[in-house]
Design a protein around this nucleic acid. Structure first.
Length: 298
DNA sequence: AATGAGCGT
C-alpha cells in the first residue's frame, strides 16, 4: 500500500536487505503440502525460523499441467525440428525410486503382523507341535538333516525365533555334508569361517600381535628415527619376528623412543631380550623388557 | 622415562 511511498531513498531498500537477509526455503512435501521455511533475524537480534504449511490439494495437478505445457514447446538447438516430447534416444524419463533401508542383511523380510507373530508363538509352544530349532522343520532338533552344518550356528548366529524361514521341505538325502555345506543357510550367506568344521567359532586367522598373545618385547631408548625395518633386522637374527610397532607421534610421525617387537616363540623372544638389552644402537643403549599386554584390545 | 593402530563385533 503506502509502504513503498514511505521509502525516501533506494538506499533504504538496500539497507533493509542487508539487515534482514531472510533466507527462504520453499518446497512441496510428499503429502502435497507446501512448506515455507523462513530464517531471519528478528528485532531483538535473535535468529528465528518460521515454518508455514499450506495445503495445496491442486498442486500436483498444477505441476503436471505445467510439465504438459513444456512438452509442447518447439525444440531448438541440435534438437530443432524434432517432434515434441522426450526422445527416448536422448532422454531418460525418470521415475521415483524408493529405496528401502535396513540394518545389515538380516530382517529384510517384513515383520510379521501381531496376529501372525502370536500364531507363530502358539505353534511353537502349543499342542505338542515339533519345530526344529535349527531349520524350523517339523522334526526334533536332534533329527535335523542339517544338524551337522547348523549346530555350531545355533547359539552364535541364530537367536531363537529370529531367523527367517528355511527353504521349503528339505529333500530326503540331500543333507549337505559336514563342512561342505552350501554358502547360504536359510537364505543368508554364511562365511566359510562360520560354517561347520571351521576351527573355533568366529576365530579368524591372521591377526598377528594380539589375541593369541604373541610374546612381545618393549624396546625403549631407540632413536627417534628408528624404523620398523631396522628393528626387524636387529631382532630377526634371533628368530622369526611376527610384528614390529614403532611408537610415533601421530602428527609428526617422529618416533617416540619406544617400540614393540613380537616374536612367534617365547624362547626366541627371551633370547633376543637377553642379547639386545644394553646393546649400543645409534649411539644409544637399548633397553628391552617384556611388554605388558595392552589393557584392552580388539 | 618410555606400553601400540584400526577395522568393526
Amino acid at each position: 500500500m503506502a509502504a513503498a511511498a514511505q521509502k525516501t531513498s533506494w538506499a533504504d531498500d538496500v539497507d533493509d536487505q542487508i539487515a534482514e537477509q531472510p533466507k527462504i526455503e520453499n518446497y512441496i512435501d510428499e503429502n502435497g503440502v507446501r512448506i515455507t521455511v523462513e530464517y531471519s533475524v528478528n528485532d531483538d537480534g535473535k535468529k528465528v525460523k518460521i515454518t508455514r504449511k499450506t495445503k495445496r490439494v491442486l498442486q500436483k495437478a498444477v505441476v503436471e499441467h505445467a510439465v504438459a505445457e513444456r512438452k509442447k514447446w518447439a525444440k531448438f538447438g541440435q534438437e530443432r525440428g524434432n517432434k515434441d516430447g522426450p526422445d527416448p534416444a536422448t532422454t531418460t524419463v525418470g521415475e521415483n525410486v524408493y529405496l528401502k533401508l535396513s540394518a545389515g542383511n538380516k530382517s529384510n523380510e517384513p515383520e510379521p503382523t501381531p496376529e501372525q507373530s502370536i500364531k507363530g508363538q502358539l505353534q511353537k509352544a502349543g499342542a505338542g507341535k515339533v519345530v526344529c530349532r535349527l531349520c524350523k522343520g517339523d522334526h526334533f532338533t536332534a533329527k535335523c538333516p542339517y544338524k551337522d552344518s547348523l549346530a555350531g550356528l545355533e547359539s552364535a548366529d541364530a537367536p531363537p525365533g529370529e531367523d527367517g524361514a528355511f527353504p521349503a521341505e528339505p529333500t530326503a538325502g540331500a543333507a549337505p555334508g559336514a563342512g561342505a555345506g552350501g554358502s547360504t543357510i536359510g537364505g543368508k550367506y554364511v562365511p566359510p569361517s562360520m560354517r561347520a568344521g571351521a576351527r573355533g567359532a568366529g576365530e579368524a586367522m591372521g591377526r598377528p600381535g594380539r589375541g593369541d598373545d604373541l610374546p612381545t618385547l618393549r624396546v625403549t631408548n631407540i632413536s627417534e628415527d628408528t624404523q620398523e625395518n631396522d628393528l626387524r633386522d636387529l631382532f630377526g637374527r634371533f628368530g622369526r619376528v611376527a610384528r614390529v610397532y614403532v611408537g610415533r607421534d601421530r602428527e609428526t610421525g617422529a618416533g617416540k623412543g619406544f617400540a614393540f617387537v613380537s616374536f612367534e616363540e617365547r624362547a626366541v623372544a627371551q633370547k633376543a631380550m637377553e642379547k639386545v638389552h644394553g646393546m649400543g644402537y645409534d649411539n644409544l643403549i637399548l633397553s628391552v623388557q617384556w611388554s605388558q599386554p595392552r589393557p584392552d584390545g580388539r
